[in-house]
Every structure is written in C-alpha cells, then in structure tokens.
Computed example of a mutant assay.
Amino acid sequence: MNVESRLENNNFILQLAGDLIGDDSGLKLMGLVSDAVEEGAKNCVIDLSKVRYISSSGIGVLITILTKMRNVGGEVFLSAPSEHVKKLLIITKLNNIFTVYDSLEEALSQIG
C-alpha cells in the first residue's frame, strides 16, 4: 500500500493506494495519525479513490483511526470510495459511522 499524507488547515489528509489489509501499513497509518494529532490536526480525511480492497483488519485500522480522532475531539471522513468499497461500507454499516463524500474536494469544502 502506498500512502501520501499532508496537513492542510487542521485537516489531516491521507491518500491511500492499493489494498488496505491492516498489515504493517496499519501501524504506519496509526503513526502518521498520531503525529498529525500532535501537530494540531482536528479532522482526518481518508481518500479511498485508489483503494481496491479492504480486509477486516483494514476495517479495524479505519475504526482505530476514528477512535483516536474522536478521543481528541476530531472526526474522520472518507472520500471517493470505489463501488466495491462503498458496498463493503454498507454491508458492515460503517457508512452509518463515517461521513462519506464522493470526492476529496467535496469533503474538504464541506468540513472547512
């Protein structure tokens, strides 16, 4: 999995590419989120446009990131999931826990 990240106006943006399966990439993502929180991130936007597959461990990573952000008064938003990932979010009812936007641009304009 490839990960690009940046902090923009207190929003931590994670752009993922590949499969989110929760292996070493899960630990890497948690480290990036922890660092971003220390740098003042209030929200985390995870761009899923290039994610092909999410395993149960990958879902665990998303929930762990959500818990970490909510513990500091923040929120996690998902953007641009593929049809396959969208179905997974619906089946697991994660679409009720996460706010999902059609694009990264839409997410950033809505959360400010």
Rank of each mutant, 00 (worst) to 15 (best):
K42V: 03
V3G: 02
S5R: 07
I90G: 00
G22M: 07
C44A: 12
G74E: 02
S49M: 12
V37L: 08
F12E: 06
K86L: 12
P81K: 08
K87E: 14
K93D: 02
L66T: 02
L62C: 01
G31R: 12
S57N: 10
G112P: 08
I46L: 09
S34G: 13
E105M: 04
L94P: 11
N95Q: 10
M30G: 05
V61G: 08
S103P: 11
A107S: 15
G73M: 01
E75T: 03
R6M: 12
G60M: 09
S56G: 02
G74K: 05
L104A: 04
K50L: 13
A41E: 05
L94S: 07
D35V: 12
I111Q: 07
D24M: 09
G73Y: 01
G31A: 07
I65T: 03
N95F: 13
D19W: 03
L7C: 13
D24G: 15
S56L: 00
A107H: 14
L29F: 06
S49A: 15
M69F: 02
G73E: 01
I21D: 15
V51A: 03
R70D: 01
S57A: 13
T67K: 01
E106Y: 04
A36T: 09
N96G: 00
T67I: 01
F98C: 05
A80M: 09
V85R: 04
I54F: 14
L89V: 11
G58F: 06
L14V: 10
D47C: 14
F12Q: 07
I91G: 05
L62W: 04
G26Q: 11
K28V: 10
D102Y: 08
N95P: 12
E75D: 08
I54G: 14
S55A: 02
T67R: 03
G60R: 11
R6Y: 10
T64I: 03
L16H: 08
E38Y: 00
K50I: 00
K86A: 12
M30V: 07
L16Y: 05
V45W: 12
L20H: 07
E106H: 10
T64A: 04
N10G: 09
S82A: 11
E38S: 11
A41S: 14
S34E: 06
V100K: 09
S57P: 00
I111N: 09
I21W: 04
Q110F: 10
V72G: 00
L108M: 15
R52L: 12
S109W: 01
L94E: 09
L32H: 02
T99Q: 14
F12N: 11
V85Q: 05
L20N: 02
I91A: 10
T67W: 00
L94G: 13
E83F: 08
Y101S: 07
F77R: 08
I111P: 09
I13S: 05
S109R: 13
T64Y: 05
E106F: 05
I63S: 04
S56H: 02
A17E: 14
S55R: 06
L7V: 13
G31S: 14
R6I: 10
I13P: 07
E106W: 00
T99R: 11
T99L: 04
L16T: 07
S82M: 13
V100I: 15
L62R: 06
A41D: 06
I54H: 13
Y101N: 00
S79N: 09
R70G: 02
N96V: 00
V85F: 08
S56Q: 00
V37R: 05
E106N: 12
V51N: 08
G31H: 10
T92M: 05
M69S: 02
E83L: 13
N95D: 15
S25D: 14
